[in-house]
Write a protein that binds this DNA or RNA. Structure first.
Lengths: 69, 69
DNA sequence: TAAATATTACTGCCTTAGCGGTAATATCTG
DNA sequence: CAGATATTACCGCTAAGGCAGTAATATTTA
C-alpha cells in the first residue's frame, strides 16, 4: 500500500461506472471541486467526503495491522 | 467492513503502543483534539490527519473493490 | 484513600476545506 | 473538422475543522 495512487484508483472506478465527476459528486452528496481534489490526491480532504465517494463506487476500506483483529 | 468501529480500533492500537492521546498527537504531528475526535469516530476529520495517526500506529489501509486491481 | 495521570469536554480564535459560478482547455463524437 | 461533453483551473465566500488552553471527570497507581 506504499505510494498507492488513490486518486487514479478512484478515477478508474468512476469511469468504469460510467460517471462524470459532477455525477459522482451529486451521488456522493459533495461538490464537484472535492471530487476533482480527491482524484488529484489532495490529502487534506475530509474523511467523510472520501468515504462518500468510495461508497458510491463500491470500494471497500480495510485497516490492516500486525495486531490482527 | 460494515459498521467498523475505527475509533475503537485506533484506541486499542494506541494503548497497545503504550501511548497517551497527547503523545500520539505529537508523533502524528496533529493536535490532541483531533486524536480525541478520531477515537470518537468523528467523520469530518481530515484524511491526512487520520492517515498520520494510522501511520504512527503501523496500521495499513487497503482499498478493495470488485474491479480487483 | 490520595496523588498522579489520562480522558473527556468546552471555549474562542484562526485557518482552510468545501462550495457554486465561471472560464479555459482537453477529450470525445458525429 | 466542428460541436458537444468533460476535465482542469481559478475566484471569493462561508462554514467548520484544527488548535492550544483550560477545566472537569475518570482512571490508574502508590
Amino acid at each position: 500500500m506504499v505510494n498507492f495512487d488513490l486518486g487514479q484508483f478512484i478515477n478508474e472506478h468512476r469511469k468504469a461506472a460510467g460517471l462524470t465527476q459532477i455525477q459522482l459528486a451529486d451521488l456522493a452528496g459533495i461538490g464537484k471541486t472535492t471530487v476533482f481534489d480527491i482524484e488529484k490526491n489532495k490529502k487534506s480532504v475530509r474523511w467523510d467526503s472520501l468515504m462518500a465517494v468510495l461508497d458510491v463506487l463500491n470500494i471497500d476500506v480495510q485497516f490492516i495491522s500486525p495486531l490482527k483483529k
